[in-house]
Amino acid sequence: MWLYQFFYQPGEWARGIYQVMENWAVRIGMGIQWIQLIDMIIVAIILIAFIFLDVMFLTWLERKVAGHIQVRHGPMRTGPHGIIQPVADAIKLLFKEPMALPGVDNLIYLISPLMMFVGAMLIYIVIPFSPGWVVAPMDYGLLFAFAASGLSSFFVMAGGWSSNNKWSLLGGMRAAAMTLSYEVPLILAAIGVALVSGGLSLVGIVESQAGMWNIIRQPLAAVLFLVASLAEMNRGPFDLAEAEQELVAGYLTEYSGMRFAMYYLGEYTHLLAGAALFTTLFLGGWQGPLLPPILWFLIKIHVMVFVYMWIRWTYPRIRIDHLMAFNWKFVLPLALINLGVTGLVLVL
């Protein structure tokens, strides 16, 4: 039954579709490369569609979660329980006037939101959504995810600089410094998981959690990854880059309309990617009884997104020097200890 295969044996279903397309291509005489190209394009479209839909849902979810934590409803008027709110936001942003600011370095100003969004989206191509449903099953998937996330953080700073605004620059540089600093414990915590699973491949990591999820085998690494990923995503208690607006100006100030929308979406894409990474590394990815794996995956990443939002709306903001001190004096040594202990336990 096709439907059953789609849900419960997604790998074979994907292979089956691919086979069908190849046979069709051979039959009509089209080169195999062209059908591979069309395959890649279709997969890309599906992935981008999924990201966009989920990210739009996340913007709605953020406001609802914020509302309910703050003893109010959140958006209620646009559609039932405000579900059409993201569409309304998108339309509003589309109609905003794109300002041509004096002194702005146009090339970098325009490229930065795009590249930041691209960097965040690149993370998704190595995440296993289901057994067999990985866009790029690389042997070094984990490292690829961190490379992509580091790339997007550079363009946050570039965006801040190109705005020709002293304070955007400062905000952008602080964001870059924070992201770079927290990448170290982030990667170290993830290496702990890689040690336990025996490889950097995300597919391998998920499959190795069939018995026990890594959050039990590597609890300290899970907590450290949670904290470091909050800093990576410029979120939660670590959002001083954009909340500089409460003091002077954040790196987003000079962006309006669709360019702001790009940054905004890029942030939520990064959030979802971070949640997906956490799920893959620590919560067992698509593992789970009874329900189809894709459903388990979606449930888990949205639970993690909810946890991230919960943290954001509960805690006040942390100051930049406390943040750095916290990283170098607390999180990093813990990550190193975790790595050492894991290594020791594995050797013995």
């Binding site: 490379a147 953080s153 550079f154 870059a176 770079l180 990448e183």
Partner: peptide, 14 residues
Amino acid sequence: VVVYAGAVAVLFAF
């Protein structure tokens, strides 16, 4: 990518 584009380039930019 991680070292050069992610760190060295950021260092230059700083």
